[in-house]
């Protein structure tokens, strides 16, 4: 499946706008993403391994926090995952 990387994070994915990953759940594909691009990890997760509160991950057009399975929600190849950054004009995360 494709994960859409927002501009502020493309510095850590070698400028890639989308990254193709495989996995059975949202958590697994995010794990594979941060394994492939280790520098991304600290921007998405706290040191304790929790998704940062200013990072929103959408499966298709739904926030994964509101999906019943949250990060263990199963995914299909045709699904799209999007990382929504917190942007404020001049600054970003």
């Amino acid at each position: 499946m494709d994960i859409h990387i927002p501009t502020p994070l493309r510095a850590y994915t070698g400028s890639k706008q989308t990254v193709n990953v495989t996995g059975a759940t949202v958590g697994q594909v995010l794990q594979q993403l941060t394994d492939s691009y280790p520098e991304l990890r600290q921007h998405l997760y706290t040191p304790e391994g929790k998704l940062r509160s200013f990072v929103n991950i959408y499966l298709n057009d739904d926030d994964i926090r509101y999906l019943p399975g949250k990060e263990s929600t199963p995914i299909e190849e045709s699904d799209e995952l999007t990382i929504i950054p917190s942007i404020a004009g001049g600054r970003y995360f």
Binding site: T7, P8, R52, I87
Partner: peptide
């Protein structure tokens, strides 16, 4: 930011607010 933008309407009676989307700043 650079080439990307976001827009929404927050704080209507029924709708979410900016903090519903981003509880805390980075």
């Amino acid at each position: 930011f650079r080439f990307e933008g976001q827009a929404s309407v927050f704080a209507t009676k029924e709708g979410p607010c900016y903090r519903c989307l981003y509880p805390e700043p980075p």
